[in-house]
Computed example of a mutant assay.
Amino acid sequence: MASTSGTAPRARVHAPWSATAWRDTAFVASGVPLQAAGWLIAGSLWTLWTPAKSVKILFLAGTSVVLVLLVLRPLTTWQRERCWAMLGLHIPRMPGFDDGRPRYTPRYLRSPELWRVLQYHMVAGPFLALGGLGVIAAWASGLALTGAGLYGWALPPSSPMNPVAHPARIVALTAVGVLLLAAAPWAAAGVRRLDARAASALLGPDRAKELERRVEDLAEKRASVVDAADLERRRIERDLHDGAQQRLVSLALNLGLARARPSAGSRTTPCR
């Protein structure tokens, strides 16, 4: 029973009519404009470029860099919200990138968090956008080719898509369309996995630094626990020492009083 329940969801996940396939497709398609936004914004000013002096080229390059830096934080926020809303994937904020207002100081520009975000939006993002466009094209082409035999009847007999004049071609196109529809969910799932891994690795805190920080926290907590235990041990030893000393003093006083009572009684007894 366990193996049956474990294999059945996999068959439904990659079926073209499954909700998971459409969720993956919607997630991948929604990421295309965000993932391509970095290069679109950086290249938008170059549409105004005309052969001119090198000063203008430097001005356009510097302006493009400034625009990309300005949109990095909102793009990153939207990517995190997209992952959470559509996949339930929570990507924590980065302490060196998301805290407070960005100050474009040399330290901020050299921070590893900024460069990791740039790697996602300027390197991984365009490839993921191409993958998303490929998934959309697979769905659209598959639907168009699969339905070729349906709308081909409305075409004139001289058309190469007419099913009466070219039945073998329509059968081949329909088969290719079915294969594309069968492969589109797998492609959407693959792009979705790559996007989720890239977003978690580049838009969230560095795992190595996070583990290092946790180890430091655990070391500090361990040291504080050891110090507290040492203080408690000293207090108990001090209490035991003081209590035993007080008891010895009390015992010595009691013994002294006990010795003094017989001698005092013998002195006060009258002789007959």
Rank of each mutant, 00 (worst) to 15 (best):
V215D: 13
S224V: 08
S158H: 12
I170D: 00
I170V: 07
A187E: 06
K221D: 14
A183C: 11
V225E: 09
A189D: 13
P167E: 04
S158C: 11
W186R: 14
A228L: 06
A172V: 10
L231G: 01
E216H: 04
N162P: 03
E216N: 12
E210H: 08
V215R: 08
D195S: 15
A223V: 07
A154I: 13
R207M: 03
G204W: 00
N162K: 05
V226W: 00
E210N: 06
V171G: 02
S224I: 09
A201R: 02
A189P: 07
G204P: 00
A199V: 01
V191I: 14
M161F: 13
P163I: 03
P156Q: 14
L181C: 09
R234M: 03
L181W: 07
A187H: 02
S200P: 07
L173W: 02
E212Y: 13
R213G: 10
D227P: 01
G204M: 00
A223K: 11
K209F: 07
E220R: 15
R197I: 15
P163W: 02
V178R: 01
A201S: 02
V164G: 13
A172S: 09
R214A: 12
R197Y: 10
R207S: 08
V191Y: 06
A184N: 13
R169P: 00
R193C: 09
A199R: 02
V225W: 05
A223I: 06
R192E: 05
K209N: 10
S159F: 07
A183T: 08
L173E: 01
A219K: 14
A188C: 06
V225N: 08
E212M: 11
R222T: 06
R222H: 07
P156Y: 14
P167G: 05
P160C: 06
V215A: 13
P167I: 05
R207V: 10
R207A: 05
V215T: 10
R197Q: 07
L218T: 09
P167K: 01
T174F: 04
S224K: 10
P167L: 05
H166E: 10
A219Y: 12
A187I: 08
A183V: 15
L181S: 06
L180G: 03
A188D: 11
L231M: 03
R213T: 08
I170R: 01
L203F: 03
R233D: 04
N162H: 09
A229Y: 00
R222C: 06
L173M: 11
D227C: 01
V215E: 15
P205T: 06
L155N: 13
P156C: 11
A182K: 13
V191H: 01
K209Q: 13
A201W: 02
A196T: 12
S159L: 05
S159H: 08
P157H: 15
P167Q: 03
N162C: 04
E216C: 14
A172E: 09
V164L: 15
A228S: 05
I170N: 00
E212K: 14
K221H: 15
P160T: 06
